[in-house]
Design a protein around this nucleic acid. Structure first.
Length: 255
DNA sequence: TTGTGTTTTATTGCCTCC
DNA sequence: GGAGGCAATAAAACACAA
């Protein structure tokens, strides 16, 4: 039974969420059996018994919720209420609660998506950090190698000369022995005139044969050594320090 | 049957829009 | 100022284990 009276009227409009449009055709609610139709409020101080909507009613409301894109037009509300045999207010409340459930679910899905994206970013970050560590240690290792190479001891010029002389004398003695042997065998090849000439020949780059540069035959040989600029120069034209340097370089190449 | 947790329905108060 | 939406909340209805 509809609540009558001006004081209760405001409450009733509120309770059933009637629009101006609905007010005009409100006579539909006259004689509305609230008990029979699953309960609207009877009185402000009297809470209506809560009745669950039937499965069929909920199904229709769900279809409408999807079709209407979660919004409920007043005309649609009245029509649904009429068809389902419930109060328009119940339709409105159902939509309201349904929107709240939909929003909560959306939030949950958004949270899951964000968490997945966050996890993916973390994994990428860990990989980058690992790569960074690996590259850092490579840089350290290579830097150390470079420093060790730069700090390798370079022989002093004095030592270089001694080494050259020692090598030359050894060459001379070997050549002497060879000459004596060939002379004894009846050949006329003469011996080198002095060990000093061997020092000069020891400074020259290796040739395909000793005869090419006259090493071992006692002639002073013009020696060409690669200078640090990659050009060939005559050792005689250079000062002693540079000469020693070249000699050292040549020794390096030999061994 | 009962206690407890979850879901659904309904209310209230506040806010925005026209 | 009325209509309607929303968040918070109450409370009934329901599900289920013990």
């Amino acid at each position: 039974m509809a609540v009558a009276g001006s004081a209760a009227e405001g409450w009733r409009k509120r309770a059933f969420q009637l629009t101006a449009h609905e007010e005009l055709c409100d006579d539909e609610l006259v004689g509305f059996d609230y008990e029979l139709h699953g309960g609207g409020p009877h009185h402000p101080l009297e809470r209506a018994a809560k009745r669950r909507l039937t499965a069929e009613q909920v199904r229709e409301l769900e279809v409408s919720f999807e079709e209407e894109k979660r919004k409920l037009e007043p005309e649609r509300k009245s029509e649904l209420a009429r068809r389902l045999g419930i109060a328009p207010r119940q339709v409105a409340v159902w939509f309201q609660n349904r929107r709240a459930r939909w929003k909560a679910k959306q939030l949950e899905q958004d949270f899951d998506r964000l968490r997945a994206a966050h996890d993916e970013l973390l994994a990428g970050r860990d990989k980058l950090l690992a790569d960074n560590d690996r590259l850092r240690s490579q840089v350290i290792t290579l830097t150390e190698k470079l420093q060790n190479k730069e700090e390798a001891p370079v022989p002093e010029p004095e030592e270089q000369i001694i080494a050259l002389q020692a090598g030359a004398y050894a060459h001379f003695e070997q050549d002497q022995l060879c000459t004596e042997t060939t002379a004894a065998a009846g050949f006329t090849e003469g011996a080198s005139d002095s060990p000093e000439s061997y020092v000069a020949s020891a400074r020259s780059p290796p040739s395909s044969s000793e005869e090419d540069c006259g090493a071992g035959d006692g002639n002073d040989c013009a020696f060409f050594l690669p200078n640090p600029d990659g050009l060939l120069g005559t050792g005689a034209e250079e000062d002693g320090a540079q000469l020693n340097n070249w000699a050292w370089l040549w020794n390096e190449q030999q061994y």
